[in-house]
Design a protein around this nucleic acid. Sequence first.
DNA 1: GTTAAAACGTGATATTTGTTACAGTACTAA
DNA 2: TTAGTACTGTAACAAATATCACGTTTTAAC
Lengths: 230, 230
Amino acid sequence: MENKKELCSNCNIRSSVVSVLNKEELTVLERACLQTEFVKGELIFKEGTPANQIVYIREGFAKLSKSGIGGRDYILSISKKGAYLGIHNLNKTTRQYNVSATAITKCKVCFIDIEKFGVLVRRNGDFAMEIISYIFGDEMNYFDRLVNNVQQQLHGRLANTLHYFANEVYNESSFNLNLTKAELASLIGTSRESVSRLLKEFQDAGIIKMGKNQVTILDDEKLLEIKQKG
Amino acid sequence: MENKKELCSNCNIRSSVVSVLNKEELTVLERACLQTEFVKGELIFKEGTPANQIVYIREGFAKLSKSGIGGRDYILSISKKGAYLGIHNLNKTTRQYNVSATAITKCKVCFIDIEKFGVLVRRNGDFAMEIISYIFGDEMNYFDRLVNNVQQQLHGRLANTLHYFANEVYNESSFNLNLTKAELASLIGTSRESVSRLLKEFQDAGIIKMGKNQVTILDDEKLLEIKQKG
DNA sequence: GTTAAAACGTGATATTTGTTACAGTACTAA
DNA sequence: TTAGTACTGTAACAAATATCACGTTTTAAC
């Protein structure tokens, strides 16, 4: 972890959400903001701990997880550049993170004081509206995934997840998983062994190619078909 | 369906969300609002149709569902008094409902013009903050349920759902399901037959009692244990 | 480089859950 | 009341998936 200070107003990777803030408001945000870097594998914050900051991901990828019974944990989603984590605490009296976040690649993040962020929301209705849009756009993206995962068989869930990686997370048809098979399993809600078997099936069927931790989608049509049919 | 007009300012079942609106703003809301009643089984709105109103549930219960593959649909949650449906369209250019809503008891609802609602959000930051709080408080409640449903076995899912009914929906340890077994199955993501089997198991174990469509939770401890252990 | 630990692949087996089939019950409309 | 339709319970069977066990490969630490 390493700290440095860069001005939000100069930040070229700043979120579109803050585009409606004026100079003065941007300065307020700047003052409320602390930048940090995490390396792969580092815990950014842990489920249940006090949450007095909103965590903004400037660069990199992080997994969001919840620990379940027997040390077994469930991965909810992969967050990337542009994500605001812990934002559900905005108007809460007791603030705590409801998931854990762990860097799965090198990550640059901003910790933003949640009180000051809240002041901006109340002061600027357009900003508030942007936040609301963000919540529905970005947070609800895992909504459909979850629904899909509940009603489908494993094949559908895996296809769904691969499609999610290619189209929502990495935006490439060939991407590095950044996750172990066991982690992928906990994202789909199954066992490591089943993931292994299924991935092999998908390879044999010519739907994907796998090397190291790299996944390449060869037959997107078929993947979508499986994703939909279950 | 039947229409009548009652003033929001006099409405004694109005939402706490609007408590931060002043008289003038409340009048704006009033003008944007149309009241209607639905009987059990009636469709309030259908997934995919244009959504120029936010639907506020004043009284009663409605199921939110998404239609899946092969006519099979999945029930996301049961909405009750105080719920705002279609609110995800607030800042969208193309507005459509992302789920269907169907009354499962007699329902009184308000249809609120979404444009005018949006104006209030932008004008009053405190109102915006209330909306954000609402979204995270009430909308995200199904989030945990979904996560739970993905990672658990059937026993855990059923326990989870019964617990959800008793504690989040009906707020009584004895409640009317208002759903057929098939619907309950589509809420849990399983088959009607499995629900039958499981409910019988739960009864035999003395965890619940069932009569007609009435469920009574006898052993909340055990239910919670199953909910957690899966 | 060596070594321990973590990650992975795969077969055999056990469980869980879905499906099919059918009969009984409850509700609805004429 | 009666017929028809939807809803329900249950058993037998089939399919999907988890678990267990074990050997192999890869990764990380020293």
